[in-house]
Design a protein around this nucleic acid. Structure first.
Lengths: 207, 207
DNA sequence: TAGGTGACAGATTTCAAGTTCTGAAACCTG
DNA sequence: CAGGTTTCAGAACTTGAAATCTGTCACCTA
């Protein structure tokens, strides 16, 4: 006969991911997960304190896959910071787009966590902001970008590209013109970050 | 006794707006509206072909109020185009913020129409884009901005400020730091639009 | 004692019924 | 005949009872 299953956290996560994919985040229950594993639902509560914790763990793991691709671009010093910034923003859109297309249920789960201000979303955003900050810091250090605080500039770039990474706009990412629109915004932002003498009219003080 | 009510479209719109405010877009029915007017619900169908048309008309009217304030800023040639652009974007946020705060139910109605791609939302966006295009065209004509097509540039600026005008982000507008964030994005965009010689690294072609 | 069980209380979801709503029709009335 | 009415069919919503789910507890057992 088959050896007894040890039932570790990873096995549970895999089964939960599967269940989530099959039933969607709204209908997937921990009883479903337990059934898939052939155990009673209390068994999974030995490993995860709550259904929410379980969903967060699955989503976190799912988000972390493919993070390397982005981090590689952010850290690729072969590319000049401006090129790197554009490549990174394009890659973020491509990655999100692929996730929505290939895994709509899991993306929906992420969207729900984001909407309810889960730490999963906050951490994911913090991670992205940090990669962005790295690129900008490189550009500032190398003289390509002019900006005071790299973290503040990262925030501004992140804000200006909301349409291309915020889950609320996921449906629009499948539209054909979306890459061109991101490209136009990128160009504008790169011009804005570029080093050059300031002109008085751009300052915020009113006459 | 009171004179008989003529029941024109405007009276119905006012009653609908009231009903919408009282019950919210999800629960307001045309029977409610008719009750408020003291007529049978079929009477309102003499003036509006469907409940959707009624909701759209109310929302359109509600959106049009305060449009003048924005148009005035967009057309204010006293202000240089860069200042005007910042003032306009700030005013859009302020106007939307006020609408959400003072009229959450009507804003929810607008949000629903936007989500289901009603022409009300499309027209509203087109109107804003046109005002934006006007400011940018002025700036390009006057030599302050460098951009090919003003309409394309308007689209890029609109996209880059999604966080500050798209209904999906309405909840975040009440957060305290939001004006500062818009300001940072404005500064970046104004720098990006500003006239200056191009540098090769900003172009899109890959090595 | 780490990892499992079944029984349970209270919250949530489902489902079928009854109700209300939308929109059309045929019909008044000044 | 513009502007109103009642009546009606089918869709959409509400409601309340039954089923299911979450999370706890006391209890096995290797």
């Amino acid at each position: 006969m088959a050896a007894k299953a040890p039932l570790d956290a990873d096995t549970i996560l895999a089964a939960t991911e599967d269940t989530l994919r099959r039933h969607g985040p709204a209908k997937a229950t921990v009883v479903d997960v337990a059934r898939a594993l052939g155990v009673s639902h209390t068994a999974v509560y030995k490993h995860f304190p709550s259904k929410t914790a379980l969903r967060e763990a699955v989503t976190r793991r799912w988000l972390s896959r493919g993070r390397d691709t982005l981090a590689a671009i952010a850290g690729d010093t072969e590319l000049s910071p401006p090129r790197r910034l554009r490549a990174w923003l394009t890659a973020v859109l491509a990655a999100k787009k692929a996730k929505v297309r290939d895994d709509p249920e899991l993306y929906a789960a992420y969207g729900m966590l984001a909407a309810e201000h889960s730490s999963v979303a906050a951490d994911h955003v913090a991670d992205l902001l940090d990669q962005l900050r790295g690129i900008l810091a490189d550009g500032i250090a190398g003289g390509a970008f002019q900006a005071g605080d790299p973290a503040e500039a990262a925030r501004a770039v992140f804000d200006a590209t909301f349409r291309f990474h915020h889950p609320a706009h996921a449906a629009e990412w499948q539209a054909p013109g979306i890459e061109a629109e991101l490209d136009a915004v990128c160009t504008l932002l790169l011009h804005g970050l570029q080093t050059r003498p300031t002109t008085p009219d751009l300052r915020h003080d009113h006459p």
